[in-house]
Design a protein around this nucleic acid. Structure first.
Lengths: 143, 143
DNA sequence: TTGACAAACGCAACTAAGTTGCATTAAACT
DNA sequence: AGTTTAATGCAACTTAGTTGCGTTTGTCAA
């Protein structure tokens, strides 16, 4: 399910896109980091690894990877920035702790299948996707 | 459940806040409009009703009503603007049609009670709130 | 009714987060 | 090595709000 940096790069290369220095670095960061990252955080990580970059190019690369389906965009409720994570992760949701602000992944067994069926029945609305975010207090903050 | 403009205003007045011209107008717009509205849309409606206003004051009023729990903030995934709706509406979620972009409300019977229980069991994370958005094709667009 | 007080307002300037246009550079194939 | 076009870098711009600060105006008490 979760793709490696090499798999992603060679799949892009096979579609005629180039393996540039920055593209490799950015895909490396995403494959090495589970949790949703903002553009700014991504740039901090690049900086920390001494990878030179230009803001515009980073934003364009994020747009590119999003358009190719390599990463997904996430918007947390109380934030103004967009976040991104690898699209090839297992379908999951996020638990956002209101106290420590940390984000945890959660995989729901059966997910929202029941709810989506009932939406189709009651509204005739055909759900193709959903986005769900839980807020609360994590185990660590609860004692 | 759904509060009237008068109920909201008198509750605010009882807490020492003033019934200003703009506050009345804005609360009137929210109580008269079911669906989540952006600051810009709110201002369009005020303009259409010949209510004079200042951008800053509208933003401050939104902040005020949010802080007092009169309205809730919503962030749709593919949008950059924040939206707001009356907090006293019944707990519900949104169906966003990918084709016509229209937003519909949905009230789930039983909501996410099962999922939240399983999150507490498996992660020790105590969910106090959640936010859920469904994407798909609405009945109208499906024929 | 008038005064005083703080809530609310209006203006201008600022900020965060990203976007666009355009000229330049550099992967990858021939 | 040459050519093509994807990718880059810079500067300027945009959107969606925010902040500071001096002014106005509801509301309550005298």
């Amino acid at each position: 399910m979760k793709k490696s940096s090499e798999e992603i790069l060679s799949s892009l290369a096979s579609q005629g896109f180039r393996m540039t220095r920055l593209r490799k670095a950015i895909i490396g960061v995403f494959t090495g980091n589970g949790l949703p990252m903002s553009a700014e955080e991504l740039m901090d990580i690049l900086r920390a690894g001494n990878t030179a970059f230009n803001r515009t190019t980073v934003y364009r690369e994020i747009g590119f990877l999003k358009a190719r389906g390599v990463i997904n965009e996430i918007q947390f409720l109380h934030e103004r920035v967009k976040r991104y994570e690898l699209a090839s992760l297992e379908h999951h949701h996020h638990l956002v702790c209101l106290r420590c602000k940390r984000v945890e992944d959660i995989v729901l067994e059966n997910d929202l299948a029941d709810q989506e069926r009932s939406i189709l029945d009651s509204k005739g609305f055909h759900v193709t996707n959903h986005m769900l975010e839980f807020h609360g207090i994590c185990r660590g903050c609860n004692r």
